[in-house]
Structure formats: C-alpha cells, structure tokens
Computed example of a mutant assay.
Amino acid sequence: MNQYQIALVVGSLRSESINRKFADALVRLAPAEFSFKHVEIGDLPLYNQDEENNPPESVKRLKDAIKSAHGVLFVTPEYNRSVPGVLKNAIDHASRPYGQSAWAGKPAGVIGVSIGAIGTAMAQQHLRNMLAYLDMPTLGQPEAFIHAKEGLYDEAGNISLGSKQFLQGWMDKYVAWVKKHNA
C-alpha cells in the first residue's frame, strides 16, 4: 500500500476558523494511506520579488512542504468574493522565482465553508484560475460550496450524517485524483 502525504493549506489565520475546523473534519474521511499536514502560511512576509533569490526560512519551509507532498488540499474562506490575502501571498511565494514553482504538477483539491448561502463559490473560482496558471491539475467535480450551519458537525466535531455522504463522495474523488496524478 502506498502512502500519500497531502499538504493541507487553510486560507484562514483565525484560531477559531470555521475552515480550519472543517479541514480537520474533512480529512478524517480520507483513507488510512492518506496523511494530511497543515502548512503554515501565517508567518510568511509579504511577497517581495527583491527577496526571491534569498528567501526567508518561512518561505523555504513552505516550498519544501509543497514539493514533498503528493498533492495539495486547499480549504479556503471567502473574503470580499475572493481568496484571503494570506492565501494569495502563500501562492505567490511558492510559485517564484519564475520557472521554479513548487506548485507545478501537484494535484489539487479546492473546497471551503462559509456562513453565507453560496459557501465559498467565488473564492474557489478565483483560486481555480490561479491554480490553472500554476499548472496544478485541479479536481473539477464534484464542486463543494459548503454552508456552515447548525448540524454540519456532530458532537465530536466530525461531519454529521446529513452531510457525510456528499463529503465522503468528494473526498473519494479527491483521493482518486491524487492517485491518478501520482501513478
């Protein structure tokens, strides 16, 4: 049995982030051969092209985490109809210098949760556009725009039965996507 290491990138820095809570519950739906490692993005400086050839340790750590992963799972909130600045900053850092992107070829999944009725639909679309440019094969279907509402989790913090079947299907497709692109 192969082991798959997945870089888990949550686009929120809040300690009580609903996307971090969702990410932690979602990864429990993955099979045992998949392990997920949260990638720290909150300590990255603002991207500055002048520092590309001598990046700080936090940027080196980010790029190493992405390069060593078999895939990336993005769990993003939606801020002002797009991705949070901290996520865009991380994407920019790991994509540079030009021609040395850590993201290239890494199979990606994109999902998120929001208190709004349309979930994170706009943020996910913007993120998918960026990932296409970065040459990341990104799972297209099923799309998942999750509305954070009462009953999404059980008392243990797991995805509740009402949403579990759909999200298990999403995770199964993501797992197959990663395996296909690591064959």
Rank of each mutant, 00 (worst) to 15 (best):
A23K: 12
L127M: 07
E33G: 02
H126M: 14
A69G: 03
G119N: 04
F36I: 11
W103G: 00
D50T: 09
V75N: 04
Q141W: 10
Y4E: 05
A65M: 02
F22Y: 11
D43R: 13
A25G: 05
F34K: 09
H38I: 04
L29I: 08
H38Q: 11
R20Q: 14
T120Y: 04
R14F: 01
V9T: 08
I66C: 07
W103I: 01
D64M: 09
L44G: 04
L8E: 05
V113H: 06
E78R: 08
K149V: 14
I66L: 14
Q3F: 00
V59F: 11
K88R: 12
I18Y: 10
I41R: 01
A65S: 03
L8N: 03
A183I: 07
Q165D: 15
Q168R: 11
Q100N: 15
A123S: 14
I41L: 00
K149H: 13
M130D: 08
D154L: 11
A108H: 02
G116K: 06
E16P: 00
H70D: 15
G119K: 02
S114M: 12
F166T: 12
G11I: 06
E150F: 06
N182S: 09
E143M: 10
R14A: 15
W177E: 08
E155C: 01
G119H: 00
Y79C: 09
L8M: 01
L29E: 13
S163K: 14
P55E: 06
I6G: 04
L8I: 00
G11H: 07
Q168Y: 06
N80P: 03
K179M: 12
I118A: 12
V110I: 13
L8C: 02
A121H: 03
H147A: 07
S114H: 06
S160H: 03
G169I: 05
V10F: 02
S68F: 01
A30G: 11
I146G: 00
V75C: 03
L46P: 05
H147L: 14
P55T: 05
T76I: 11
K106D: 04
G151I: 10
A25H: 04
E143L: 10
Q3M: 13
L161Y: 01
Q165L: 14
R61H: 08
Y47S: 02
L87C: 05
G109V: 01
R28M: 14
S35E: 14
L127S: 08
L127R: 06
Q5T: 15
Q5H: 13
A94E: 08
D154Y: 09
K179E: 15
N80T: 09
T120H: 07
K63I: 02
G140D: 13
Q49A: 09
K67F: 06
V175W: 00
K60L: 15
N129L: 13
R61W: 00
H126R: 09
I146P: 01
H93C: 03
A23C: 10
R20I: 05
